[in-house]
Amino acid sequence: MTQEDKKIEVKGSNLVRRNFFLRMLGIGTACAGTWVGSGNLIARAQSAETAAAAAPKIPDYDWNKHKWAFGVDATRCIGCLRCVEACKAENGVTQDAHHFRTWVERYVYLEGDERAHVDSQSDAQNIAASGSEKEFRFDNRYKDAKIEKAFFVPKLCNHCTHPACVQVCPTGATYQTKDGVVLIDHSYCIGCQYCVQACPYGVREFNHVLGVTDKCTWCYHRITKGLQPACVEVCPVEARVFGDRNDPQSPISAFLRNNRVSVLKPETGNAPNVFYVGIDKEVC
């Protein structure tokens, strides 16, 4: 065998190997492609067709027929904090002063002060006044002060149209339903708390026992049964209003018709669905 022959043979065997490799690559790609195709894409295509009509199996409820929204009239709130305790009882929220799905803030302008003094029920003095982290009340620290203006502002998840929390969830454990509620799947959440970081309103809280993030669901288990969310149910002064925007007779539709409303932190682009009446420039 000459040098030349050897070269040819090497080339030949190279060629054979290359062909084998290409075929192998082709088969591999095809296999992978089939899996991807059958696994996800087809499933996704099918779901896209059916999703429009299909709805989760909730008795007597069709999420295509509702569009929920929430209103807060801060001029009516008396700061009794029944909503805060009711929410915790209804939803099994951690019983301490660091985990809330809803809370109430107090804004007080003392005479001559440019900026408001702000506190919530979690403030140390308020906890001291209630004597427990399971019951909440505002202490009466301003009773002898010269007050220019004071008011309470209830806060809760805004169930944004463009929720930053859903955007950053790495797994799809938190999502927006068709009827406009942002929910969280406790059995799928990995507990990374990226959503807690991303929420501009600080409404997400972490459940250390389950190792998952928790949030306000607008009491999805209640509203899908025709009930009001627990905080709305117990509000004694109608400071909280809830309802279906698809129904012009609903309290929220009337609230939005009859008031000039604002939302919190509109600059975030989140487009909140909790609408406020009677808040002030200092409300954060």
Partner: peptide
């Protein structure tokens, strides 16, 4: 100052 109640966690 004032921080949201959940932020202490």
């Amino acid at each position: 100052g004032y921080v949201y109640p959940n932020e202490t966690d």
